[in-house]
Simulated assay, not measured.
Amino acid sequence: MQERNLRRSNRDRTEATRGDLIAAARKLFTEKSYAETGTPEIVAAAGVTRGALYHHFADKQALFEAVVEQEANAVAEEVERAAPVALGAREALLAGTEAYLRAMQVAGRTRLLLLDGPAVLGRTGMDAVDDRHGNRTLREGLATTMRAGAMRKLPLDALTGLLAATFDRAALAVDAGAPFDDQLAVIAALIDGLMKQSPQPA
């Protein structure tokens, strides 16, 4: 029993240290950018040693990837909560779209996921993160809508990629001050155009 408790205590400390590093790095990366943040600042902000940093992460880029992974997962969870199975196909896509745009309004997310993410991890690396999170939820929603017969059959990978790019562009526009409702309305019109029977204007 004592040995099991010790292992749990060590694991808890390890997870806490990793969490502190990710939280400190996120704050600095969003305030100063990835390029302008040094590892000495990160370990100082996290209250850990440089050795602890390199115990958990190979380098600053690996730590950045962990931050990006955490943020992308948080956005995907918001989308999934907003679009439960009980919603109709079109309603789920629209609810997920709005949830994505709102989730991306969290301070620092557009910089992390849409600007620094592709620059630091490369397009291939960032696509891999997206495919595990946001693009996965979008792809599943589109596939469900097509299977239900509510949307025209189109190549799923191409449609997912192009719609995801549209969502990202809208998130950047909102972050730069564009009206949220305008971006949402245009995306809703695009989604309606993909449906087999587009809703008639009220």
Rank of each mutant, 00 (worst) to 15 (best):
Q183D: 03
M151N: 00
A188F: 00
P179E: 01
A25R: 14
V75T: 15
R136M: 06
A173D: 09
T110G: 03
T14E: 15
D192N: 13
D130K: 12
G108R: 06
T49D: 05
R26Y: 06
T166Y: 04
V67M: 09
A148V: 11
L28A: 06
V75E: 11
L87M: 10
A35H: 04
D116N: 10
E140L: 10
L142D: 12
A24M: 07
D131T: 12
G38C: 07
F64Y: 11
M146S: 13
L53C: 07
L87W: 00
V120L: 02
D192Y: 00
G122M: 11
N73H: 12
L112K: 05
P179Q: 04
G149V: 04
R136W: 06
D20G: 10
D127R: 15
T160A: 06
A92Y: 04
R132Q: 14
G122Q: 10
P118F: 02
A176D: 15
F64P: 00
E77P: 05
D12K: 11
R4F: 02
M104R: 04
F167R: 03
V129R: 08
Q105A: 12
L21R: 04
S33C: 05
N135W: 07
V43F: 01
E31P: 05
G51R: 09
K153E: 13
M151P: 00
A74F: 02
M1F: 03
L159W: 01
P155A: 14
G193V: 00
E3H: 08
A158Y: 02
L154M: 09
I191R: 00
A119V: 14
A202Q: 08
A24L: 04
A72W: 01
R81K: 14
A72T: 07
E80D: 14
E80T: 15
E140T: 15
A148T: 14
R102T: 15
N10V: 07
Y34P: 01
A23V: 01
A76P: 08
L184Q: 00
L172D: 12
R136L: 13
P199K: 12
L184H: 00
L172Q: 13
A165E: 04
R139L: 08
A95D: 10
V68E: 08
A128K: 13
D116H: 07
R8C: 05
E36V: 06
R11K: 15
G88Y: 07
E15Q: 15
L159D: 03
T145L: 03
R111E: 09
Y34N: 10
M195Y: 07
L162N: 13
L194W: 03
E3I: 14
D131F: 00
A45I: 13
D12Q: 11
R139N: 11
L53A: 08
A107Q: 05
R50L: 08
E31I: 05
A72N: 10
L21S: 01
A189M: 06
L93R: 04
E65H: 12
A83C: 06
A44Q: 02
P199Y: 01
R81A: 11
A176K: 05
T137M: 05
G51Q: 13
T49L: 09
V48W: 02
A185H: 06
A99E: 03
D181N: 10
E31F: 02
Q200L: 09
Q183M: 13
T144Q: 11
